[in-house]
Computed example of a mutant assay.
Amino acid sequence: MHRTKKKKKMKRQDALLKVYFHDPYRFADFINVILFNGQEILEPTMLEDYDSDTSTYVETHQIGVIGINRNRDIIKKVNIDGKMGLIAIENQSHVDRRMLYRIREYDSYTCLNQYYYQQSQSKSRKKLLHIMTLVLYFGSKPWKGARTFNELALQPPSSLESFMNYPMVPIVCVTDLDYHMFHHYDNLNLIRGLQIIYRFNGNIEMLKGMIVSKIVASLLALFSDDEELFEMIQIQSQEEINMCESIRKFKEDNIRQGKIEGRMEGRIEGHIEGRIEGQVELLIEILQYKLKYLSQETIFKLQNSSEQQLKELSKHIFEIQDEKEVTQILVS
C-alpha cells in the first residue's frame, strides 16, 4: 500500500476508534471482558470523561521550561464505591515495539499534570488518581513484541521484588478475545467481524448475514482495506447496516462501472477515427455516470470540441473527479 494512502487509512481508523470508545457502554463492556472475564463489574454510570490532552511541561536548570505535546486516544475517570481512578485505552493497528515505553510516558505525564493542577489550587490538596492503560491491538499480524512491561525488565532481586514498581500495562490482541463474552452488541459484532475478516485474509464477503451498526460496519470496512465500501457505507442513511446487502450493492456498482468502462474503451478505439458525434455521446454518458451530474454548459463545450480535445479527454476520463477537471482538460 502506498505510504500516503496507508497514513490516511490509519488516521481514519484512529479517529473512528476514538469515537467508538467515547461511548461509556462500549468502553465499560470492553474493560469487563479484558479484566473481569466478562463479569459486569464496571458499569457505564461509573464512568465520566477525562481530558485526553496529556501535554505538559518540565523545568530544567540548563534550558528552562520545555513543553511536551501528547494526546491520548481515550481516558475515563472511574468511580466504584466512592473510590476513583483513571483507565485509558490506546488503539494500535500495527506492531510498535516502543508502545510499552510510550504508555509509561503517557501515564507519567498524566500524573505530572495532576500534580500541577493541585499546585494551582490553594484551598485543597487532593491525592493523585491511580492510572492504568490498556493497549488494544487491532492488527491482522501477530504481536511479536512484549505485551507487559515485566517482559522487558530483568528479574529483580527476590527480596526487593515486592517493592519494585512495574504496573500492569497489558497489550491485548482483540482477535484473541472471545466475542461471546461481550454484552454490548457493537463490541460483539466488531470482534466477531474482525476475527472472520482476518481468518479469511481480508475477504469481507465472509461477513454476509451480519447486521451491524453503522460505526461497526465502517470499522470492518477500514480494517479489511476496503475504502470504497467504507465510502459507500458513509452515504447510507440508516444506522443499521446489512453487510450482505451492502456488499451486494457494492459489487453491483463495481460491475456496472466495469461495463461502462469496458464500453468506453472498446467504443473509443473503434470510433477514434470515426464520427466525432459518436465520441461526444459516449463521453457524456461516461461523465454523467461518474459525476452524477453534468451541466448544459459542459455538454455544450463537449459538443463543440475538436477531435484532438476529445482524444485528450478520453485518456484521463477515469481519473476525473469533478466537472472543473473536464473544462481544464478541454482548454489545455
Rank of each mutant, 00 (worst) to 15 (best):
K249Y: 07
H316K: 14
A153I: 02
Q114T: 05
I320N: 09
G278C: 02
M164E: 01
R12A: 14
C111V: 09
R248N: 14
S314G: 08
T327E: 15
M132H: 06
E312V: 03
V174S: 02
T175K: 02
I204L: 10
D176Q: 08
P157Y: 15
N79A: 07
R263H: 07
F250G: 03
I317M: 09
T327F: 06
S237Y: 04
D29T: 05
K290W: 04
D226C: 15
T148W: 02
F250S: 14
I286P: 15
E323R: 08
G266P: 06
S120A: 14
L220D: 11
F138A: 00
V326S: 05
S158H: 12
I191F: 07
Y293Q: 06
F318D: 12
L194I: 07
L283K: 04
I272A: 08
E59A: 10
S224F: 03
N165C: 04
L112P: 00
S124W: 11
S124Q: 07
R104V: 07
Q234V: 03
Q92N: 04
M210N: 05
I131A: 00
Y117R: 03
V78C: 07
S213M: 00
K8G: 11
L17H: 03
S218N: 08
I196K: 13
E273I: 05
V212G: 06
T45V: 11
M264G: 06
D107A: 11
T45A: 03
H180P: 00
P167G: 02
Y57D: 06
K214T: 11
E59I: 15
A28Y: 01
V174H: 01
L229Q: 08
E48C: 09
L134W: 02
F30K: 01
N91R: 12
L17A: 06
K126M: 05
Q121F: 08
M181I: 05
I63L: 10
R267S: 10
L222K: 04
D73T: 09
Y198N: 05
E231K: 08
Q309S: 14
E261V: 12
C244N: 07
K214E: 11
H94T: 04
M243W: 11
D176A: 07
L17R: 10
Y109S: 02
F223D: 04
L229D: 03
L287V: 06
M181L: 15
P167S: 01
G202T: 08
Q195G: 12
L229F: 11
K123R: 01
P142D: 01
D53C: 12
Q288S: 06
F230T: 05
V95T: 07
L194A: 03
Y179E: 15
Q236T: 08
I241Q: 05
G262H: 04
S213Q: 03
